[in-house]
Amino acid sequence: MSKAVKCLILLAVIALFFVTELIPLAITAMGGAIACGLLGLIPAKQVFSGLSNSTVVLFAGMFVVGGAMFYTGLAQFIGNKVVSAVGTGENSLMFGLMTVGTVLSAFLSNTGTAACLLPVCLGICASAKIPASRQLMPLAFACGWGGIITMVGTPPNIIAAGALSNVGLPSFGF
């Protein structure tokens, strides 16, 4: 059996496990990497080499910072400051939430920031008696464009910087 056929069969099995979640997703992902090494599809020393990549470490750190923001109550504090600064008017609240989303997503993962600010936005909208449906999409857009401001805001920026430096080209940084 050729390596290509082995790889396709392994990919189908892993996809099946991901879709059905018969075993935990983390074990499925690690099992796929280990299986690639055991089947000889990749050299054994490269099975977990991706975990030593600085991009992976940076993303892990961003999740820790994002989780700490909400565990410590900083996110709720930010929500209260937004309301006290811009009031409860629909347009001013939208501007305030978008500003906070843009600034936070520049230094945290843009997807994580949007997910973390969602409950803050819902709480603010409920207390201000404003429909949340008009605030969530602008918040998502603000987190999206905030992520492209810095290198750590969105994965493609980090991946592009790493790829440039790997081939010896000048990279961009903070």
Rank of each mutant, 00 (worst) to 15 (best):
K3D: 15
A4G: 14
K6F: 05
I9S: 13
I9V: 11
L11R: 07
V13W: 01
I14W: 00
F17N: 12
V19L: 12
T20K: 08
T20N: 10
E21H: 08
P24A: 14
P24C: 04
A33F: 03
A35R: 03
G37A: 02
L38P: 01
G40F: 02
I42P: 04
I42K: 07
K45I: 05
Q46N: 11
F48N: 13
S49D: 11
L51H: 04
S52E: 12
N53M: 08
S54E: 14
V56L: 09
L58W: 02
F63C: 11
V64E: 12
G66C: 13
G67L: 01
A68I: 05
T72Q: 10
G73E: 11
L74F: 08
A75F: 01
A75W: 01
F77W: 10
G79L: 04
V82W: 00
V82L: 06
V83W: 03
G87T: 03
T88R: 14
T88N: 11
S92E: 10
S92A: 14
S92L: 06
M94A: 13
F95T: 12
F95D: 08
L97Q: 04
V100F: 01
G101V: 02
T102M: 03
L104E: 15
L104S: 04
A106H: 01
L108F: 05
G112A: 09
L118W: 02
P119F: 06
P119H: 15
V120N: 04
V120G: 09
I124S: 09
K129S: 10
P131A: 11
A132S: 12
R134M: 11
L136V: 12
A140H: 00
A140V: 07
A142Y: 01
G144F: 00
W145I: 06
G146Y: 02
I148R: 00
T150Q: 03
T150G: 02
G153K: 03
P155Q: 04
A163H: 03
V167L: 00
G168Q: 07
F172M: 08
G173T: 13
F174S: 15
F174M: 11
